[in-house]
Amino acid sequence: MATTLEILKSPLLSGVTHGFFTRRGGASSGIYQGLNCGFGSQDQREVVALNRARVAEAMDVAPEAMVGVNQIHSADVAVIESVPETLVTADALVTRVPGLLLTVLTADCQPVLFADREAGVIGAAHAGWKGALNGVLEATLDAMEGLGARRAQTVAIIGPCISQRVYEVGEEFMDNFLMEDDAYGRFFAGGPGGKPMFDLPSFGLHRLREAGVGAAEWIGRCTYSDPAKFYSYRRATHLGEADYGRLISAIRL
Protein backbone atom coordinates (compact mmCIF):
# COMPACT_ATOMS: atom_id res chain seq x y z
CA MET A 1 0.00 0.00 0.00
CA ALA A 2 2.68 2.49 1.07
CA THR A 3 4.68 1.77 -2.08
CA THR A 4 2.36 4.06 -4.04
CA LEU A 5 3.36 7.05 -1.93
CA GLU A 6 5.86 9.59 -3.21
CA ILE A 7 8.36 10.63 -0.54
CA LEU A 8 10.95 13.35 -1.11
CA LYS A 9 14.15 12.98 0.91
CA SER A 10 17.39 14.86 1.41
CA PRO A 11 20.87 13.31 1.22
CA LEU A 12 21.83 15.60 4.12
CA LEU A 13 19.45 13.57 6.31
CA SER A 14 20.68 10.18 5.13
CA GLY A 15 20.66 7.68 7.96
CA VAL A 16 17.64 9.38 9.56
CA THR A 17 14.15 8.12 8.65
CA HIS A 18 12.40 11.14 7.17
CA GLY A 19 10.22 12.25 4.30
CA PHE A 20 8.39 15.17 2.72
CA PHE A 21 5.29 13.43 1.36
CA THR A 22 3.67 14.67 -1.83
CA ARG A 23 -0.10 14.29 -2.38
CA ARG A 24 0.38 11.16 -4.49
CA GLY A 25 -0.82 7.76 -3.30
CA GLY A 26 -3.58 8.79 -0.92
CA ALA A 27 -7.24 7.82 -0.64
CA SER A 28 -8.83 11.28 -0.70
CA SER A 29 -10.93 12.45 -3.65
CA GLY A 30 -12.28 15.64 -5.18
CA ILE A 31 -10.33 18.79 -4.31
CA TYR A 32 -8.40 16.70 -1.75
CA GLN A 33 -7.38 14.09 -4.35
CA GLY A 34 -4.46 12.13 -2.95
CA LEU A 35 -2.72 12.02 0.41
CA ASN A 36 -4.53 14.69 2.44
CA CYS A 37 -3.27 14.32 6.02
CA GLY A 38 -5.05 17.25 7.63
CA PHE A 39 -7.83 16.59 10.11
CA GLY A 40 -8.33 20.37 10.03
CA SER A 41 -9.64 20.12 6.47
CA GLN A 42 -13.26 19.33 5.61
CA ASP A 43 -12.24 16.01 4.08
CA GLN A 44 -13.80 12.81 5.47
CA ARG A 45 -12.14 12.07 8.79
CA GLU A 46 -11.86 8.33 8.18
CA VAL A 47 -10.15 8.93 4.82
CA VAL A 48 -7.63 11.32 6.42
CA ALA A 49 -6.98 8.67 9.08
CA LEU A 50 -6.35 6.11 6.33
CA ASN A 51 -3.91 8.48 4.62
CA ARG A 52 -2.08 9.05 7.89
CA ALA A 53 -1.89 5.30 8.48
CA ARG A 54 -0.19 4.95 5.09
CA VAL A 55 2.37 7.56 6.14
CA ALA A 56 3.00 5.71 9.41
CA GLU A 57 3.50 2.45 7.47
CA ALA A 58 5.96 4.15 5.11
CA MET A 59 7.90 5.46 8.13
CA ASP A 60 7.78 2.04 9.77
CA VAL A 61 5.80 3.02 12.88
CA ALA A 62 2.28 2.41 14.16
CA PRO A 63 -0.20 5.25 13.50
CA GLU A 64 -0.34 5.78 17.29
CA ALA A 65 3.35 6.80 17.23
CA MET A 66 2.63 9.83 15.01
CA VAL A 67 2.88 13.13 16.88
CA GLY A 68 1.70 16.45 15.49
CA VAL A 69 0.75 19.83 16.93
CA ASN A 70 -2.10 22.32 16.62
CA GLN A 71 -0.30 24.84 14.39
CA ILE A 72 -0.99 28.56 14.91
CA HIS A 73 1.97 30.33 13.17
CA SER A 74 3.76 30.84 16.50
CA ALA A 75 7.38 30.35 17.61
CA ASP A 76 6.33 27.81 20.25
CA VAL A 77 8.10 24.45 20.40
CA ALA A 78 6.81 21.29 22.10
CA VAL A 79 9.36 18.93 23.67
CA ILE A 80 7.96 15.44 23.08
CA GLU A 81 8.84 12.61 25.50
CA SER A 82 5.79 10.44 24.77
CA VAL A 83 2.67 10.66 22.61
CA PRO A 84 0.54 13.44 24.18
CA GLU A 85 -3.02 12.55 25.19
CA THR A 86 -4.30 15.78 23.63
CA LEU A 87 -2.99 17.85 20.74
CA VAL A 88 -0.42 20.39 21.92
CA THR A 89 -0.63 23.91 20.47
CA ALA A 90 2.77 24.80 18.97
CA ASP A 91 4.49 25.09 15.61
CA ALA A 92 7.47 22.84 16.15
CA LEU A 93 8.32 19.60 17.96
CA VAL A 94 11.59 18.11 19.16
CA THR A 95 12.45 14.75 20.70
CA ARG A 96 15.28 12.39 21.58
CA VAL A 97 12.91 9.41 21.98
CA PRO A 98 13.39 6.72 19.29
CA GLY A 99 10.23 5.51 17.54
CA LEU A 100 8.20 8.72 17.84
CA LEU A 101 7.29 10.14 14.42
CA LEU A 102 7.33 13.95 14.50
CA THR A 103 5.03 15.49 11.86
CA VAL A 104 4.03 18.91 10.56
CA LEU A 105 1.34 19.83 8.04
CA THR A 106 1.73 22.46 5.32
CA ALA A 107 0.12 23.81 2.16
CA ASP A 108 2.57 26.59 1.11
CA CYS A 109 4.36 27.23 4.43
CA GLN A 110 7.79 25.71 5.00
CA PRO A 111 8.03 22.27 6.59
CA VAL A 112 11.49 22.05 8.15
CA LEU A 113 13.06 18.80 9.40
CA PHE A 114 16.05 18.89 11.76
CA ALA A 115 18.48 16.25 12.98
CA ASP A 116 21.64 16.02 15.06
CA ARG A 117 22.51 12.40 14.35
CA GLU A 118 25.41 12.32 16.80
CA ALA A 119 23.32 13.53 19.73
CA GLY A 120 20.24 11.56 18.67
CA VAL A 121 17.92 14.59 18.65
CA ILE A 122 15.42 15.52 15.92
CA GLY A 123 12.92 18.28 15.26
CA ALA A 124 10.17 19.34 12.87
CA ALA A 125 8.85 22.87 12.35
CA HIS A 126 5.98 24.55 10.52
CA ALA A 127 7.39 27.89 9.37
CA GLY A 128 5.22 30.23 7.37
CA TRP A 129 6.32 33.83 6.97
CA LYS A 130 4.96 34.78 10.38
CA GLY A 131 6.50 31.86 12.24
CA ALA A 132 9.85 32.34 10.49
CA LEU A 133 9.84 36.07 11.28
CA ASN A 134 8.85 35.39 14.90
CA GLY A 135 11.73 32.93 15.35
CA VAL A 136 10.27 29.42 15.21
CA LEU A 137 13.38 28.05 13.47
CA GLU A 138 15.74 29.45 16.10
CA ALA A 139 13.40 28.28 18.86
CA THR A 140 13.51 24.74 17.43
CA LEU A 141 17.32 24.76 17.53
CA ASP A 142 17.22 26.09 21.11
CA ALA A 143 14.86 23.30 22.17
CA MET A 144 17.04 20.70 20.47
CA GLU A 145 20.06 22.03 22.35
CA GLY A 146 18.05 21.62 25.54
CA LEU A 147 17.93 17.89 24.71
CA GLY A 148 21.67 17.67 24.10
CA ALA A 149 21.99 18.63 20.42
CA ARG A 150 24.67 20.96 19.08
CA ARG A 151 23.50 23.36 16.41
CA ALA A 152 26.87 23.26 14.64
CA GLN A 153 26.29 19.57 13.90
CA THR A 154 22.55 19.90 13.22
CA VAL A 155 21.15 19.61 9.69
CA ALA A 156 17.94 21.43 8.67
CA ILE A 157 16.04 20.74 5.46
CA ILE A 158 13.24 22.95 4.13
CA GLY A 159 10.67 20.91 2.24
CA PRO A 160 8.24 21.89 -0.53
CA CYS A 161 6.81 25.39 -0.03
CA ILE A 162 5.69 28.38 -2.06
CA SER A 163 8.44 29.98 -4.16
CA GLN A 164 9.16 33.63 -4.86
CA ARG A 165 7.95 33.68 -8.46
CA VAL A 166 4.35 33.01 -7.34
CA TYR A 167 4.34 34.63 -3.88
CA GLU A 168 2.97 38.13 -4.45
CA VAL A 169 2.50 40.13 -1.24
CA GLY A 170 1.47 43.64 -0.23
CA GLU A 171 3.58 46.62 0.87
CA GLU A 172 2.34 46.18 4.44
CA PHE A 173 3.57 42.58 4.41
CA MET A 174 7.02 43.75 3.29
CA ASP A 175 7.03 46.48 5.97
CA ASN A 176 6.72 43.79 8.67
CA PHE A 177 10.12 42.50 7.55
CA LEU A 178 11.81 45.85 6.96
CA MET A 179 10.80 47.06 10.43
CA GLU A 180 12.63 44.04 11.82
CA ASP A 181 15.74 44.51 9.65
CA ASP A 182 16.32 46.74 6.60
CA ALA A 183 18.53 44.03 5.14
CA TYR A 184 15.46 41.82 4.73
CA GLY A 185 14.63 43.86 1.64
CA ARG A 186 16.80 41.44 -0.33
CA PHE A 187 14.14 38.73 0.09
CA PHE A 188 11.69 40.80 -1.97
CA ALA A 189 11.64 41.45 -5.72
CA GLY A 190 9.33 43.47 -7.95
CA GLY A 191 6.54 41.39 -9.47
CA PRO A 192 4.78 41.80 -12.84
CA GLY A 193 2.13 44.06 -11.31
CA GLY A 194 4.64 46.09 -9.33
CA LYS A 195 3.78 44.26 -6.12
CA PRO A 196 6.56 42.72 -4.02
CA MET A 197 7.32 39.00 -4.44
CA PHE A 198 8.59 37.29 -1.29
CA ASP A 199 11.25 34.56 -1.20
CA LEU A 200 10.11 32.42 1.73
CA PRO A 201 12.64 29.55 1.44
CA SER A 202 15.59 31.93 1.07
CA PHE A 203 14.43 33.77 4.17
CA GLY A 204 14.16 30.46 6.04
CA LEU A 205 17.66 29.45 4.96
CA HIS A 206 19.01 32.84 6.03
CA ARG A 207 17.47 32.55 9.50
CA LEU A 208 18.78 29.00 9.92
CA ARG A 209 22.31 29.91 8.84
CA GLU A 210 22.37 33.04 11.00
CA ALA A 211 21.33 30.84 13.93
CA GLY A 212 24.44 28.72 13.41
CA VAL A 213 22.96 25.51 12.01
CA GLY A 214 25.59 23.10 10.66
CA ALA A 215 23.97 22.68 7.23
CA ALA A 216 20.71 23.82 5.65
CA GLU A 217 19.07 23.47 2.25
CA TRP A 218 15.73 23.89 0.51
CA ILE A 219 14.54 20.85 -1.39
CA GLY A 220 13.67 23.16 -4.29
CA ARG A 221 10.02 22.29 -4.89
CA CYS A 222 7.24 24.88 -5.17
CA THR A 223 3.85 23.85 -3.80
CA TYR A 224 1.86 26.39 -5.83
CA SER A 225 3.42 25.50 -9.18
CA ASP A 226 2.91 21.72 -9.14
CA PRO A 227 -0.76 20.83 -8.50
CA ALA A 228 -0.19 17.16 -9.36
CA LYS A 229 2.21 16.76 -6.45
CA PHE A 230 1.37 19.41 -3.87
CA TYR A 231 -1.53 21.06 -2.09
CA SER A 232 -1.44 24.86 -2.00
CA TYR A 233 -3.59 27.18 0.08
CA ARG A 234 -2.89 30.11 -2.24
CA ARG A 235 -3.64 28.12 -5.40
CA ALA A 236 -6.90 26.83 -3.92
CA THR A 237 -7.84 30.43 -3.04
CA HIS A 238 -7.04 31.66 -6.56
CA LEU A 239 -9.14 28.83 -8.04
CA GLY A 240 -12.06 29.66 -5.73
CA GLU A 241 -12.00 26.20 -4.13
CA ALA A 242 -13.80 25.79 -0.82
CA ASP A 243 -10.89 24.09 0.96
CA TYR A 244 -7.48 22.50 0.40
CA GLY A 245 -5.54 19.44 1.45
CA ARG A 246 -2.52 19.37 3.76
CA LEU A 247 0.85 17.84 2.99
CA ILE A 248 2.67 15.96 5.74
CA SER A 249 6.38 15.94 6.53
CA ALA A 250 7.78 13.49 9.04
CA ILE A 251 10.97 12.43 10.83
CA ARG A 252 11.91 9.86 13.46
CA LEU A 253 14.92 8.36 15.19
Rank of each mutant, 00 (worst) to 15 (best):
residue 152 A to E: 15
residue 252 R to T: 15
residue 103 T to Y: 05
residue 160 P to E: 05
residue 145 E to A: 11
residue 179 M to V: 09
residue 112 V to R: 02
residue 150 R to K: 11
residue 36 N to E: 04
residue 82 S to T: 13
residue 105 L to R: 09
residue 252 R to Q: 13
residue 214 G to V: 07
residue 226 D to C: 07
residue 58 A to R: 13
residue 191 G to S: 01
residue 175 D to N: 14
residue 119 A to W: 07
residue 146 G to W: 06
residue 47 V to W: 01
residue 220 G to C: 09
residue 108 D to M: 06
residue 24 R to A: 13
residue 150 R to Q: 14
residue 70 N to K: 13
residue 204 G to M: 03
residue 155 V to N: 00
residue 217 E to N: 10
residue 173 F to M: 10
residue 106 T to A: 05
residue 73 H to D: 14
residue 175 D to M: 11
residue 221 R to G: 06
residue 102 L to V: 07
residue 56 A to S: 02
residue 175 D to S: 09
residue 112 V to S: 12
residue 15 G to E: 02
residue 199 D to T: 02
residue 33 Q to K: 15
residue 200 L to W: 06
residue 202 S to T: 08
residue 143 A to C: 14
residue 12 L to D: 04
residue 128 G to I: 06
residue 119 A to Y: 10
residue 51 N to I: 07
residue 104 V to L: 11
residue 174 M to Y: 02
residue 243 D to H: 08
residue 28 S to I: 01
residue 41 S to E: 01
residue 13 L to I: 00
residue 34 G to I: 02
residue 156 A to H: 00
residue 18 H to F: 02
residue 71 Q to K: 11
residue 210 E to Q: 13
residue 150 R to Y: 12
residue 53 A to S: 15
residue 146 G to V: 10
residue 234 R to L: 15
residue 17 T to W: 01
residue 153 Q to W: 13
residue 76 D to V: 14
residue 28 S to M: 10
residue 114 F to H: 05
residue 250 A to E: 04
residue 98 P to I: 09
residue 62 A to Q: 10
residue 213 V to Y: 07
residue 121 V to H: 06
residue 237 T to Q: 15
residue 135 G to E: 01
residue 169 V to T: 11
residue 182 D to L: 13
residue 169 V to N: 05
residue 27 A to E: 15
residue 191 G to R: 03
residue 236 A to N: 13
residue 102 L to K: 02
residue 232 S to F: 15
residue 142 D to G: 03
residue 218 W to S: 15
residue 107 A to Y: 04
residue 231 Y to A: 10
residue 7 I to G: 05
residue 129 W to Y: 12
residue 117 R to N: 00
residue 127 A to N: 14
residue 104 V to T: 14
residue 122 I to S: 00
residue 78 A to V: 05
residue 39 F to K: 12
residue 89 T to P: 11
residue 169 V to R: 12
residue 45 R to N: 09
residue 251 I to R: 01
residue 160 P to S: 12
residue 174 M to K: 15
residue 185 G to L: 04
residue 175 D to C: 08
residue 207 R to Q: 14
residue 31 I to F: 09
residue 68 G to Q: 12
residue 243 D to A: 12
residue 118 E to S: 07
residue 183 A to W: 00
residue 197 M to S: 06
residue 188 F to V: 01
residue 26 G to F: 03
residue 25 G to E: 04
residue 146 G to F: 11
residue 186 R to E: 13
residue 253 L to Q: 10
residue 13 L to T: 00
residue 212 G to M: 12
residue 224 Y to V: 06
residue 110 Q to V: 10
residue 163 S to R: 14
residue 27 A to R: 10
residue 222 C to K: 06
residue 178 L to P: 02
residue 215 A to P: 00
residue 149 A to N: 00
residue 71 Q to F: 07
residue 43 D to K: 03
residue 117 R to K: 14
residue 155 V to C: 05
residue 126 H to T: 08
residue 39 F to Q: 02
residue 10 S to A: 12
residue 38 G to E: 03
residue 174 M to I: 06
residue 249 S to W: 08
residue 80 I to L: 08
residue 64 E to R: 10
residue 77 V to Y: 02
residue 62 A to F: 06
residue 126 H to G: 04
residue 199 D to S: 13
residue 126 H to I: 09
residue 88 V to D: 03
residue 188 F to A: 06
